[in-house]
Design a protein around this nucleic acid. Sequence first.
DNA 1: TTGTAAATTTGTAATCATATCAAATCGTAT
DNA 2: ATACGATTTGATATGATTACAAATTTACAA
Lengths: 124, 124
Amino acid sequence: MKYLLTHKTHPTVEEIYDALHDEITTLSKTTIYNTLKLFVEKGAAAQLNIEDKCVHFDGDISTHAHFMCQRCGTIYDIYPSKMPIIEDFASLQFGAHNVQNVQLNLTGICEKCMKNKNKESKQK
Amino acid sequence: MKYLLTHKTHPTVEEIYDALHDEITTLSKTTIYNTLKLFVEKGAAAQLNIEDKCVHFDGDISTHAHFMCQRCGTIYDIYPSKMPIIEDFASLQFGAHNVQNVQLNLTGICEKCMKNKNKESKQK
DNA sequence: TTGTAAATTTGTAATCATATCAAATCGTAT
DNA sequence: ATACGATTTGATATGATTACAAATTTACAA
């Protein structure tokens, strides 16, 4: 949990394992899977299904959306302060269905990669 | 493509395979994976990352959101006519980043399963 | 302290969706 | 009928996630 709260990189299980394994040498991936599952069930963390490869986790459970760059894989937070419409997701209703979770996921090419792309094409 | 357009169930590769294998006995899953990937790249179909188990596909590429029931697995379409705010997602901008895809995914328990749940608890 | 049972953590092995890739098949123009 | 490029196939590999039993740790009573 401390790692999630201090690293706002939306890490995968793999990334958490690699980061913590040095100081907690006995740590196993199973424990990370179990613990994150518990966090998500209890609402202490959010699970992001923004790509099909693997799941990402977020210790920030405030209302916000995400943008993932298809090129570099970076996941950016999008807060209501920058995009007011996001505030409306928190209270979305859908008929008589019981909505428990809302995810707004954007994908594309981030500003940084766009610039690199331009450089590359100019070099040719 | 025909299957996708006539079965609005947001099928997985597995489901498409099971459905078509009888009439196209030589069909392989690899072909389904390749073809769907092509459809998604060309914008002819949408890929839904609404759950972590596997990917679902949608032949309807009009602006709409999805609700998936965690209990029965059914994926419901949510059109702007029922939820006008969805229309605003289609044109979301995020700074200087190049947004290519937007997914609004809701999860929870659907109306049908809510009723079954109530029945079950009354029986106890 | 010590013993003990419950809770947690671990590591190995299984599972399952998806990717890889060479061989087989098909379509089409000669 | 032939040849060649494009498509499809199926066997195999990969990699994330789960299952589960054994090992370890914790909490607490004696």
